[in-house]
């Protein structure tokens, strides 16, 4: 199978400001990659290079060709930040225009129907809400029937219901074997769909792997229970960082949840209502990016 995206030693600067320092990445067909990073980390710049809108130094290819090559454009769909609020244009007009750009386009009306957006077809873009515009922009990205989708902050402005529907559609696209690169600030959502996470910080990927691999590197957990034991006992357990008593709960913050849990096993008959919460992607993200900021 041909690699979909390949980047080696990619660098990019805006004048004196270096945005991407040394990016190396391979994306295989059917993969869903979540690209996360703080504002200004270089996510959009990276996507723009892959789309051929910006030129960096180093080796980059999309479907084995340079970004922006006509053959690869036919297989690409993108949902960039900001929506096209074109005056005097209806949803139907925009969908028709988008469909006319690709020889392998889907039927725009059928797609709007599938997305439950048919009612909006005669509406002018200027009167739609932010969430509706985002959904239309997603439909526009898909109407060319692309193999590879770049989705830059796709759910910004969507209400909870629309976001849920959006991620369901992403799951359906996964079933169809589409490859996707998604950036989002909603980390709890991206961790649900991404096969792989890329954390971009100061122009480099500080992590490139699955959520499970990330969590293995970051073993922290919070153990909550009720007990008649003195809280001081727990301070001496392995990997315990901090113990808080919020009566009647005892909250144990551990840097290695498994190690602390093993030490708790002999006391199990004195512990009740035990629950364990692993570090979320957001916690790990903040640790990783915060650590780097401090350097």
């Amino acid at each position: 199978m041909t690699t979909v995206i390949q980047a080696e030693h990619l660098k990019f600067s805006y004048g004196d400001k270096t945005v991407l320092k040394d990016i190396n990445l391979t994306v295989q067909p059917g993969e869903i990659v979540g690209l996360i990073g703080a504002n200004g980390a270089g996510k959009t710049t990276f996507l723009n290079i892959l789309l051929g809108l910006l030129a960096g130094t180093g080796e980059v290819s999309v479907f084995g060709q340079r970004p922006g090559a006509p053959d690869s454009k036919v297989r690409l769909g993108s949902m960039l930040q900001g929506d096209m609020v074109i005056a005097g244009t209806t949803v139907g007009d925009l969908m028709q225009l988008a469909a006319a750009q690709s020889p392998r386009a889907l039927d725009p009306d059928a797609l709007l129907n599938e997305f439950h957006l048919s009612d909006l077809k005669p509406q002018r873009l200027g009167i739609l809400s932010g969430g509706q515009l985002r959904r239309i922009t997603f439909a526009v990205a898909l109407v060319g029937n692309p193999d590879l989708l770049f989705l830059d902050e796709p759910t910004v402005g969507m209400d909870a219901q629309s976001r849920k529907a959006f991620w369901t559609q992403i799951e359906q696209l996964r079933q169809q074997g589409k490859t996707m690169v998604i950036t989002s600030h909603y980390l709890e959502e991206i961790q649900q769909v991404a096969d792989r996470l890329l954390i971009l910080q100061n122009g480099r990927f500080v992590f490139n792997g699955s959520l499970q691999a990330l969590q293995k590197q970051h073993l922290g957990a919070t153990i909550t229970c009720e007990t008649d034991l003195q809280s001081a006992i727990f301070n001496g357990l392995p990997a315990v960082d901090k113990v808080q008593l919020v009566a009647p709960k005892l909250i144990i913050h551990s840097t290695d949840g498994d190690q602390t849990l093993r030490a708790l096993v002999p006391m199990l008959d004195r512990l009740h209502q035990v629950s364990v919460t692993r570090e979320s992607l957001e916690d790990i993200f903040l640790q990783l990016t915060g650590k780097d900021d401090e350097k």
Partner: peptide
């Protein structure tokens, strides 16, 4: 407006 609102970018990303 076409440039600022992404229409030109959108079309430049198309095969045509």
């Amino acid at each position: 407006r076409d440039r600022d609102q992404g229409l030109v970018t959108f079309l430049s990303l198309s095969a045509h």
